[in-house]
Design a protein around this nucleic acid. Structure first.
Lengths: 155, 155
DNA sequence: ACCATAAAGGTCAAAAAAGGTCAAATCAGA
DNA sequence: TCTGATTTGACCTTTTTTGACCTTTATGGT
């Protein structure tokens, strides 16, 4: 019995995958009535599933003719990767953030699903068994190492 | 008069045997009400009967639409793997030893060359930036996690 | 132009829906 | 009887769902 959020998430991702422009426009209220939920449920989906960390950008407009535009931030080239690298530098990365990043790398096919799984497990707090602070720092260093490795031409 | 814990255990193992994916998803509360027991009884079953030593992996999610996923590890014919697991237990593993293990896993085709590369980088002393002792211990824990993951039947 | 109203969308916090932990109480077998 | 395994319950954390109230934008009438 998958939750409403994940149904809506899937629905939107399907639309997004089908769109050639890399973004879709939706009406919050329409979506809410399609899924028979309160409109704020849609915001919850956007906040938790289509945020920046997940590689999406959302803009919207209120009033008559208003809309919500969901834009996928694709990681196509080294440029974007380098961006991420800088972004990642030094700052501690909590587990959930790390998982989001890995999911994104899988989605963008920089990693296979299997690689994503394995690396997630390696960077898991419970598995590392370090205190949260050291764990977050280690995770940050290792994700950086991962990104650097993915940038290498030779594998 | 088989105990509750073993009735639940049998029930879950039957489900697991019937599943083609190598895992099953259950609701803790549903199970508890099927067996007319407190929900924490389910955790007891999971902890004692579906732990790693017994060849299972459990993951879960809280909140609406939450679930418990029980994943079977493939312990049958991968004897050597189980062997390795035992070998790895607890002891610190210095970098070179770790690299050898990874090379071997690649040779035996438990890992692709690429996976081997990535994981080596992640477990590299210089990249981890921990003192040697903690590094060796962490490496040991993480290699164990890796091995366990390679035994998962769901990927 | 000015304003009222309708049409969107946004925010925030409370309630609900799962699952987790831990320790006390009980039970069963050596 | 003692000991380890099981059962139970009180309390906790995370994630989702819901609703009341707020803000922004467009439009039509005066």
């Amino acid at each position: 019995m998958s939750s409403l959020v994940s149904q809506i998430e899937k629905y939107l991702k399907r639309q997004l995958a089908a769109s050639t422009e890399g973004y879709i426009d939706v009406q919050r209220n329409d979506l809410a009535s399609i899924f028979m939920c309160v409109p704020s449920q849609i915001n919850y989906v956007l906040d938790t599933r289509f945020n920046q960390a997940n590689g999406y950008y959302v803009e919207s407009r209120r009033g008559g003719g208003g809309y919500v535009r969901i834009i996928k931030l694709a990681l196509h080239d080294e440029e974007d990767m380098a961006q991420l690298l800088n972004n990642t530098a030094k700052k501690p990365i909590p587990q959930t953030t790390g998982e989001n990043l890995l999911d994104r790398l899988v989605e963008e096919e920089f990693l296979t699903a299997r690689e994503g799984h394995i690396i997630k497990a390696l960077l898991d707090q419970d598995n590392m068994q370090l205190d949260k602070e050291s764990g977050d720092l280690l995770r940050s260093r290792l994700l950086r190492v991962l990104l650097l490795n993915l940038l290498r031409e030779d594998f």
